[in-house]
Computed example of a mutant assay.
Amino acid sequence: MAATLENIAELLKNDIKVKVAGVDADGILRGKIMAKEKFLSSVKSGFGFSSAVFGWDMHDALFTNGVGMSSEGGGYADFIAVPDLTSFRRIPWENNIPFFLLHFLSENKPVVACPRGMTKSIVKKLSQENFKAWAGVELEFVNFQTPTEDGLLTKSIGIGHGVTPCFMAKPLHGMPGNSGHIHVSLTDEAGKNLFAREERNPSARWPDLEHLSDIGYHFLAGVLDALPDIMPMLAPTINSYKRFVENFWAPVAITWGNEDRLSSIRLITPPVCKPSAVRLEIRIPGADLHPHYALSAIFGAGLRGIQKKLDITVPPSSARTAEDGKPTLLANTLEKAVERFSAPTSVAREIFEEGFVDFYAATRQHELRLWREAVTDWEFNRYIETV
């Protein structure tokens, strides 16, 4: 049963505690268990939650490079955490405790770094154009027989069976990585697919576009145009870029094509699917993606393409000729990706608030600094006896 303000007390009548969690900048759930009475009293107005949720990294180390969402100088003052009743579920492996996701407010405004708040904002912008967003994320993972002491969701279940699921983009050298492909489409409020063309267009610029609507065309153009500038939101870690190796099923350039699984964006149209299932598959993300940030970036880029009526400036892979030259390569390191993302002219600054771009760039710079300071096994094994 869906939770509402009217029935929430009844749904929780036999419970003593409630688990709540918000999503941080690395896609990790940060939460706590609270008394049911405290939760019920906070359903409308929310409750205090330390802003440190956006002040530390995935290993709870504080950002040290001036990240602005929260700071030591500001005492990590509380945000307001608001439960999302539509996210209600019970966690079977934790004694069926009720669970709710949170989004964060500051001075009655969404915190710009809040992943769920960001996604809600993009969905609202789409709704204002009479669009409804649809998406599905395919996550691959590898199981290792090296159980750890903690975990969440899939990892929690796996640990109970003596395995640790690994969602790293490239966990093993010489093997294909773990992808996190994202399928997206738009419908109207009645559910009609807005990427599907009513009738095949035999005079389309390329055959790949014969079944794609004008809205779908501009959406695709927007994503292609933004790709170089939103890479950190699709590939957020150092390891993400180890997956981008040619001939290993991971795209390395700005490419697209109908039913082309080697391109960055695969267009899926009739006859391989029904008109109601026309969609784009964004094949860049790995399984280490931050789903809220990635989805916000894709739909934000697509909406920008529609609003600006952008054109597709690169041919599909099937139509590329020698005159077209080689496709433009995407960043192959997090450092290069962050440089494009944070540049003054970055498309990311059109799609998102300036404060978020600066914040997220700083979090990735923090990750890069830790990487540069690390001494890896490769270095040790290569140089210990030779230098």
Rank of each mutant, 00 (worst) to 15 (best):
A2G: 06
A2M: 13
N7Q: 06
N7V: 04
L11P: 02
K19W: 10
A21W: 05
A21P: 02
D24C: 09
I28Q: 07
G31V: 00
K32T: 15
K32C: 05
M34P: 01
K36I: 04
K38A: 07
F39K: 07
F39T: 10
F47Q: 00
G48D: 12
G48V: 08
G48R: 05
G55H: 06
M58S: 12
D60A: 10
L62T: 06
F63S: 13
F63W: 07
V67C: 13
E72T: 11
G73N: 08
Y76T: 03
A77E: 02
D78A: 13
F79I: 00
I80T: 14
P83N: 10
S87H: 03
R89N: 11
P92I: 09
P92L: 07
P92S: 13
N95D: 11
N96C: 12
F99S: 14
L101C: 07
L102H: 08
L105Y: 06
S106A: 08
V112S: 01
K120R: 15
I122H: 02
V123S: 02
K132G: 02
A135S: 13
V137P: 05
L139T: 02
F144N: 06
T148N: 04
G151L: 01
L152M: 08
K155W: 08
S156R: 15
I157H: 14
I159L: 10
G160D: 02
G162A: 12
F167A: 08
A169D: 08
A169M: 14
K170T: 06
K170M: 15
H173S: 10
G174A: 15
P176T: 11
H181R: 10
T187Q: 13
N193V: 01
E198N: 12
R200E: 05
R200M: 09
A204K: 12
L212R: 03
S213R: 00
L220Y: 10
A221G: 11
L227M: 14
D229R: 11
P232H: 13
L234C: 10
P236I: 11
I238H: 12
E246P: 01
A250T: 03
T255Q: 08
E259Y: 10
L262Q: 14
L267S: 14
T269M: 04
K274C: 05
K274V: 03
K274E: 13
P275I: 06
V278F: 11
L280Y: 15
L280W: 12
I284W: 03
I284M: 06
G286C: 05
Y293L: 15
Y293E: 01
S296Q: 02
A301H: 01
G302A: 07
K308N: 12
L310T: 09
S318L: 10
R320W: 12
A322W: 07
E323R: 09
K326F: 15
K326M: 14
L329T: 12
L330F: 03
A331P: 00
N332W: 06
T333Y: 13
E339I: 05
E339Q: 07
R340C: 03
V347Q: 09
A348F: 07
R349D: 03
R349Q: 07
R349I: 01
I351K: 14
F359V: 00
A361E: 00
H366A: 02
V375C: 01
W378V: 02
F380C: 01
R382E: 04
Y383R: 05
T386R: 08
T386H: 12
